[in-house]
Design a binder for these strands. Structure first.
Lengths: 335, 335
DNA sequence: ATGAAAGCGCTAACAG
DNA sequence: CTGTTAGCGCTTTCAT
């Protein structure tokens, strides 16, 4: 009923535990005949090595476990990233612990603490807006850290992001190019780095066209689809309502779509692509980022660090694609 | 540079390691004054307990780690399930290892082996079609297992599924009710339990209306969106093409939508809801299941087992919702 | 209230 | 080629 240990296998095979260890770990220097006997005992008892005990002793090999901490694993964007990280880890014989923060620094600390207490070799982190100085200690202890999607305050580590500001600017410029001057900005919490960057890109574009930002058209802190929907409904009751909207993430885009009628009376460009975006009427124009590339790049950086790379922290900026489909102005027809 | 251990803290606080252990674990019977001194040493050295070493000694408490093994973490359906499982685990002070199988028994075994080698307390499993007899040993060793979405062959454990067969039957009956008699079935690999069930539901419905199944209208083994698209294109070139389609999962539904023109010339009902389904023209009629409920139910069952429940394995069947939006026939208008 | 000894399952380092 | 000893970081058990 209890799990067999090396001792049990050793007894069954008539050898010492050390010999079992060598066989199980594929170490050289065991007579083929002995190895065979041990192998049989292993199979007969259904023995499986305890990797926790193993890594307790072998401090140099690590735990072959990494942690992935994202905003919300249920968000398709992070889910794709997670899958990409998992594949890289799997290729290298590592397993992945996952945790969601909900963008709450409190929960982030709990999750990270639980991971480092289990001595993960490294951490891939979508950081919340809180300070990350508390990661200094684990890092001194050898835990490697890589940030993805956003940089972490007070922490100099490898970071993989996209060109949020430029991409947002391009999106808004697209709307301006189609004659819009009353362009609303709908964003998530402003203390999230990507959101602040995207808002800055929005302002860049307006400024470049000599249009002053109208605070009445700017809404931050939209945390859910219904909130985004309500925000747009409110904007449309303004005496001088917007004729176009820039939405700063996928959830908000969905909320705005909820608010819009079918032959959409407003031009719309969103950050983040959506599965059926090209089949809407009109098809949705978006800024598209590649979560698989983000996750893969972060994982590669992390595993380099785990392998011993101690060079200065790198910042990798991946490019987005601007996908014009029609909802921001022209292009439909024979598409 | 090296991580401090209890010994280090003990020395710094002028006590024995055992006292540190008591303080760190919040055990009773330590003088408040001593506890304070230890606490300071802990903070000064940045000490964090090694939970792997801890659970090596405390065999009764387990590792507070569970494993979640799904088909594909990038699939929004499993991502939602994963988030739900993670929340339940977090509430109970557990962390979650995740792995994707791609529906390959080989990879499934690798992932599960890596998890059990780390002595997870339990496993939530979306099993592939392979035999799962190999799980007997870990289960004898105390690892609890719960299946979700599908049952596992050769393994009597708690299982959470939905009413796939009945739901598929209802969907196809809906199409029949709108006068269709040439209804195509597009499905994923037939050895996946849910797919076989849904196909059976399709046949049930046809049989109930006295319509013989036409093999020319049935396609299995569609593993991707492009494959589904191609399959539908092929069906439409038949001398006597289908007038309606039932798609057996979300990926296939997306593929079929790719193949369809805008005023869809075919009636369509799909298994699994999609984010923008109600904004398509026509809005998509679907069978909707609740991945959050599936994951949450599975997690609750697992934690009961971990807590010591040794009653006979349970089978929980959750209900789906049939959401009529128009693509399968009537209802649009002033919707 | 505190500590000393022993051992969880495994492997490094050294014998033989 | 194989075994012995010691110890990874922690906690159980039993003293004091």
């Amino acid at each position: 009923m209890n799990r067999p240990t090396m001792k049990d296998v050793a007894r069954a095979a008539g050898v010492s535990p050390m010999t079992v260890s060598r066989v199980v770990s594929g170490a050289p220097g065991v007579a083929p005949e002995t190895a065979a006997r041990v192998g049989q005992a292993v199979r007969r008892l259904g023995y499986q090595r305890d990797d926790n005990a193993r890594s307790l002793r072998q401090k140099n090999l690590g735990t072959s476990t990494i942690g992935l901490v994202v905003d919300d694993l249920a968000n398709p964007f992070y889910a794709l990233m997670a899958r990409s990280v998992e594949d890289e880890a799997h290729r290298r014989g590592h397993v992945v612990l996952v945790g969601s923060t909900n963008d709450e620094p409190q929960r982030e600390r709990e999750v990270i603490a639980a991971f480092t207490a289990r001595r993960v070799d490294g951490l891939i982190l979508v950081p919340t807006s809180g300070s990350h100085a508390f990661l200094k200690r684990p890092m001194d202890g050898g835990t490697q850290v890589v940030c993805v999607d956003r940089p972490a305050r007070g922490l100099a580590v490898d970071t993989v992001t996209v060109d949020n500001r430029a991409a947002a600017g391009r999106a808004v410029t697209h709307l301006l190019g189609h004659g819009h001057t009353r362009i609303a900005y709908l964003g998530d919490r402003y203390d999230i780095w990507t959101q602040a960057e995207r808002h800055t890109g929005y302002r860049d574009a307006l400024a470049a066209h000599g249009i002053p930002e109208d605070p009445a058209l700017v809404r931050h802190e939209l945390r859910s689809q219904p909130q985004a929907r309500a925000a747009l409904d409110a904007l449309r009751t303004l005496p001088d309502p917007p004729t176009a909207v820039f939405t700063s993430n996928d959830v908000i885009t969905l909320g705005v779509l909820d608010a819009l009628g079918d032959p959409a009376p407003l031009a719309l460009v969103g950050f983040d692509d959506l599965p059926l975006a090209e089949r809407l009427t009109p098809p949705l124009t978006v800024v598209s980022q590649d979560p698989v590339a983000l996750g893969g790049t972060a994982a590669n950086l992390l595993f380099s660090r785990i392998a011993g790379d101690r060079s200065a922290p790198r910042s990798v900026v991946l490019l987005t694609r601007f996908v014009v489909r029609g909802s921001g102005g022209p292009l439909p027809a024979g598409a």
